[in-house]
Design a protein around this nucleic acid. Structure first.
Lengths: 144, 144
DNA sequence: TATATATCGGACATTTTTATCCGATATTAT
DNA sequence: ATAATATCGGATAAAAATGTCCGATATATA
């Protein structure tokens, strides 16, 4: 569904969100450890999230990553997916046709419209704040 | 969503289904041409579909691929996806957790359950017969 | 039976994704 | 200033997915 990079990106953002609310800025190593991901690969993803203004990064001693509380309420799951995987999961034809629309649909077009609409709604309405909250409350987990 | 192999496999099956109802057995080249796919790669996929009893193959002169009308009514989109991509699209955790279930869910578990359930229902209830029919009637297309 | 022509199946090549390495750069504390 | 330590960013490597090649095998027809 999502690429590995996107999975890591979502988990990383949730973890950083959670830690930011505890007043903690987190380092790359801490993130990779918390979400059980390869450190160097995670570095690339965090860079990308930072350049897309999903998370905030600071260099130097005591540097690391954070997300302001305000940003957490604005940010949806959709924003993160778009930043890493782009919009192909919603936009691309299920059968890979270059042009697939209501005028010239592939055989799966109508049937997938419903599924994609629900996926899109879900991603748009799910905020990072809520996701981080469920982890903070111990209702959900980021590893194993 | 689906792998390229799976996209080709679905399109190929629909085309073969359509042609079988016209009483025509189709060759690899004809299939690849009809669905605009690389011939050699398509050969692998058709072999796999044949060994999974999705389609019927015959060698030698006048050989090619076909699907009996009866089989077309039985076969669902789900059968083809399972044969090529396996069940990961439904079974795998959206965040890649090895163990993700109601007892120990990832932050996206509940939200994805609804989407996946709808996707599964759709795949199970969509028969190859219906898909081939929409192509035959010119309501849908397999290329561009 | 010989031949033409179709798929089969294994090895190989290319591209994309995933993952790693390391010097450069920025920032804080001494 | 300088040292310590964090991210940045470009090159490289490994793995997986996608795509190709070609001889082997099967089968209908002449």
């Amino acid at each position: 569904m999502f690429s590995k990079a996107c999975e890591y990106g979502i988990k990383a953002t949730i973890h950083i969100s959670h830690q930011s609310r505890l007043g903690k800025r987190v380092s790359l190593k801490e993130v990779a450890s918390a979400i059980d991901s390869p450190v160097a690969f995670t570095a690339k993803i965090l860079q990308s999230l930072a350049s897309n203004n999903i998370i905030k990064s600071s260099q130097g001693i005591n540097g690391g990553y954070s997300i302001s509380k305000e940003r957490q309420t604005q940010l949806s799951l959709h924003d993160i997916v778009i930043a890493i995987d782009g919009d192909k999961i919603i936009k691309n034809c299920a059968l890979g046709l270059k042009e697939c629309n209501n005028e010239s649909p592939c055989p799966l077009h109508d049937k997938f419209k419903k599924v994609k609409d629900e996926l899109l709604d879900m991603m748009l309405s799910t905020t990072i704040l809520k996701l981080g909250d469920s982890v903070e409350k111990g209702q959900t987990v980021l590893v194993v």
